[in-house]
Write a protein that binds this DNA or RNA. Sequence first.
DNA 1: CATGAATGAGCCTTCATTCAT
DNA 2: CATGAATGAAGGCTCATTCAT
Lengths: 218, 218, 218, 218
Amino acid sequence: MEKYSDNPLDTKRRILEAAGKIFAARGFQGTTVRDICSEADVNIAAVSYHFRDKKNLYFDTLKYWQAAAFQKYPHIRETDASLPPEDRLRAFVFQFVSRMLNDGNASWFGKLMAKEVIEPTEALDIVVEEAVRPSFEILRSIVTELIGNVSDERTIRLCCASIIGQSLYFFYSQPVIAKLFSGNTPGFTEPELIADHVARFSVNAIKAFAIQMKGDTP
Amino acid sequence: MEKYSDNPLDTKRRILEAAGKIFAARGFQGTTVRDICSEADVNIAAVSYHFRDKKNLYFDTLKYWQAAAFQKYPHIRETDASLPPEDRLRAFVFQFVSRMLNDGNASWFGKLMAKEVIEPTEALDIVVEEAVRPSFEILRSIVTELIGNVSDERTIRLCCASIIGQSLYFFYSQPVIAKLFSGNTPGFTEPELIADHVARFSVNAIKAFAIQMKGDTP
Amino acid sequence: MEKYSDNPLDTKRRILEAAGKIFAARGFQGTTVRDICSEADVNIAAVSYHFRDKKNLYFDTLKYWQAAAFQKYPHIRETDASLPPEDRLRAFVFQFVSRMLNDGNASWFGKLMAKEVIEPTEALDIVVEEAVRPSFEILRSIVTELIGNVSDERTIRLCCASIIGQSLYFFYSQPVIAKLFSGNTPGFTEPELIADHVARFSVNAIKAFAIQMKGDTP
Amino acid sequence: MEKYSDNPLDTKRRILEAAGKIFAARGFQGTTVRDICSEADVNIAAVSYHFRDKKNLYFDTLKYWQAAAFQKYPHIRETDASLPPEDRLRAFVFQFVSRMLNDGNASWFGKLMAKEVIEPTEALDIVVEEAVRPSFEILRSIVTELIGNVSDERTIRLCCASIIGQSLYFFYSQPVIAKLFSGNTPGFTEPELIADHVARFSVNAIKAFAIQMKGDTP
DNA sequence: CATGAATGAGCCTTCATTCAT
DNA sequence: CATGAATGAAGGCTCATTCAT
């Protein structure tokens, strides 16, 4: 009966936008196709038509918002290789945290990813290959430079994990931190301050590592 | 048909065991009462009888496994205060990680907690007050001692967050790490090695902090 | 565990009292055995033990309260036959209405009976044989005397029905009347006033019948 | 398996028809949505789709059959005001009784209404406002004309109640009357004969009232 | 006699999906 | 392409009833 004056091609996009919002908020199981269609203002059957079924819509939504997040907060560039590794580490953490923490649509990717990690589906592959691994490789090169070539692969990996672990914690633990400190959380919510701390903490740790190891293997 | 008195009085416990397993694996929404009862080999109405409804069963399950986890891996004792803070930090991380990472039933608590943090329900309060806050306070006293009394509250909190963040990462990211390193993950799965790394990394960082701050405020 | 100091024989009575109250308020289908046992403060299994099942409890409850109602408001006595039929009709209606309308326990019988008439079960027989028929026979003799022996059986029955119909209406329509007249219902709730009106209305009608019929068949 | 388009667009009506039949027979609590859908030969989810839930279906069913009953047996017209009140009273009772008593679907309204009166739900408002009150107003004007303007409001209301009470009795007491007279019930089942009796009985009563009251207040 | 844990059937409702238009 | 009515499979929960003590 009703006709939309919109471009008919954006029905699909409207569904993806709505799905990002609702999947991020309620998870896969907690989301109903009806709610998404209602939010997107499209007919129920549209999901089946454009995405075959709910699971496939979830996949496509994850990919869609992952792409959006990396478009807004890209990987730090190789051309930045001229900067000292301390600065590059801080920039890395800032981009990494911003990508997930920023309010509005951009944060949907972070939430979707976090849920996927905690309760993996087949979609975890996408996240790992297209988001985690590239980030890890960049981080690896920064850490390698920081620690010097005195170290073994295992130590480098552990240090990378320490940095990623800290960064993620400041994102996904927001509700816990708010409860723990009764909302009085200066420095725990702004990407700049988070990046300052994580970078400084980690640079300190790694440089001490470097010194210690140099002593170990003269 | 079925026996009434298979094993008297432990129906409630059997439900809690099964619920821990299944809630941990599939989350609250993804779990059906029928599945729990089937796993526990009890009638479906038993949940209503013993726990009133699914939500209340979830609460009780969380408390049950939280208690079990802390019974097996208790908080490190105040009497350990005689040890140097470096050793206490390592012990803390070891207990913390073991509590969640150990295979078998004990790890259900960790998974339940992780899901609760990522997709909070009303039960988040229980987790924060009874598991997170006590741990945080202990960690806080260790960090305070390490950093010396040159530091402010905000810095101490951020350092605690860095430690907790690393520790948690090694727990919940197991599937991601396995994919990322193709299963070749020495040092990423054993609580002892995780504790070694996290403690060393963090002690290095915090001691450097202490030195830097002493320089800042002579 | 707990023991009642009460006479153990009154468990049954307590159930019947509670059942009267709750069946009357909510009907057979709307009543749960648990509610009755909770109200009676007895164990769930007591109903099964004393009454075999819910349906049988309902039967026994109906009989119990029917007996109670007729004990408190008995049939008007044959010895009253000396009174003029106008007075006996008024007395009949008064007893009839009081039996059902009086507040408290006595009214439970009325409500049980009304529900039984509107949605008959096998228990309708009890009501008809032990409550309706005796009342009808008494009323029949009064009407016969009022109308004189000029009338046929069918007319007498119809007049009896008119009287019973009016009397019942003032009982079961209380909620409707309250809504219809917005609670302003003088004369519609007190058994004395109801009896005054119904008796006067009906005596007038029947006496006119008598005169008309005498004219018809001289 | 099943066809989708057996008969398009009348699923809703089929449900209402089946619901009328079954609600009338077993009441709200005694009726299952499954039974209705089975009778209507529709899928069980159709109730949720078209009526949201069981309670709302009950409301709509009541309205649907109330409308049907008043369409088949409308209120007597104001244009009949030219007829003498005796005739109008008989016509009123005839319509009133027919509306509920006629066999087949039409009687469902009567049964639904009777159950609603005896065991009221939130739907009683609908019945009172849309069925009872209009009828009562019409009856009130007839009685007022019959009794003359010698009477007070309370007496008029009581007389209306006497007429309604008789009329209803002949409807809802069919099962009791059949048992009481062993099925030999001439004059108790045909709307015409019921209307003859009730109208004559009541006209006699009211006219006598009128004479008595005229004597009271000369 | 009384208890209360346990049972199994069934009810209302919700959900993803499909079909005819 | 889009619509919305219709489907079938569960899901959470309630209830009368039973059994061992």
